[in-house]
Amino acid sequence: MASIAFRNVTKRFGDTVAVNDVSFEIADNEFFCLFGPPLSGKTTILKLILGLERPDEGEVLIDGKPVNHVSPARRNVAMVFQNLALFPHMTSEENIRFPLVERRISPDRIAPRVADVVAKLHIGHILHKSPAQLSGGERQRVAIARALVRDPVAYLMDDPISALDARLREETRVELKRIQHEMSRTLVYVTHDQEEAMSVADRIAVLENGVIRQIGAPSDIYDNPRSAYVAGMLGAPAMNLITLDPGRLSALDGALPLHAMNVPDGATRIGVRPEDLAVTSAGEGSSSPVEVYEVEPLGGVTVVTLQAGETSLRAMVRGQPKIEPSSRVALAVAEGQACFFDSEGQAVTA
C-alpha cells in the first residue's frame, strides 16, 4: 500500500516539455485518474512513477520516500499495458503464475496468492483457457490478475480498455472499480475518455500540454470547472460556451436571456451544460434566431443541435420530444446552472 506524490516535477524530451512543474499527491488506496488529450503528458507521468523516466527537475515520492534514483525493479509498482501483452502460448493460469514462478517463489506459496487474485477477479472458469480463447474483457481481467499477483504497492493502467467496444467498455469500467475496491491498492489510471474517467475515478487530474489544469472529484470538476478548457473536457456533448452580448444581460443577440442571473464582473462567456439548456418551441412565425440544425434521438434522451448565427449549440432533452429540424426554438437557462468565464478562459464567480 502506498501513496504517491510529485513535487514540482518537470520532464523534457529535447525541446518539448512533456511534464511541466507538476505537483500532486495520490492517497493510499485511491483510484486516481490522469485525463487529457493525446500528448498532454499522461503517459510520461506514468513512466515517471514506474521509473522508466527520470525527472529533470523535482521529486517523485512513493510512500513519502524519494524514489528518483530507485530503479523500476525496486519500486514494486505494477503496470497493466494497453495491449495487455499476455503470453499466447500459456493458459490464463500459467500467465497469472508467471511473475511468481519467475521470482522463484515456492509453489506452496504461489497457490494461495493465485487463488486469492482469481477469486477477487471472478476468473476461476477461464483459468485453463489460452488468451486466444478469451473475450476482450476476459483477457483484460487475466492481465490485471497477472499484475496483481505480485502484490505490488500500487498499480498503473495505461488506457487499458480503449480497445474494447462501447458496450463492453461500459461493463468493464464498473468491473475495474469493483476490483480496485476489493484489492484495496492505489491505482493510477490513464484515459482519454471523459465518461470512463468520471465513472471510475475517486479523483481526476485534467491535463493540458504537460500541466495539470484541475484536480478534484469527478462531480466537483464537472460542476465547478476552473477554466473553459476543463469545462470542455468533461461531459458529452461538451459544455456550450457562449459569448455574452456586450453590455446586456443576454447572449446570442438576446436569444438567451439572462435577466434572472447574477452575471459576475469580467465574464465574457457563459458555459451551459447541454442538459441545463431548456429548449421550447418558439411558436409559429417566431423571429427567434435559434434554428434546429439536427435532432439525434438516443432513446432515453435526445440531443438537439442548434444553430444561432455563427454559434453552434447542443441541448440534451429528456425523453423523445417532437422537435423538427429547421424549426425555430426559444432557449432558457435556470439560475445556478451556468458557469462564467473571463476573456482568458478562467472561471469567474459573482
Partner: peptide, 13 residues
C-alpha cells in the same frame, strides 16, 4: 451495488 456518477447522469447498478 455500485453508484456510477457520470456528469449529468447517475447509473445505479
Amino acid at each position: 451495488n455500485f453508484v456510477e456518477r457520470i456528469g449529468a447522469r447517475t447509473i445505479l447498478h
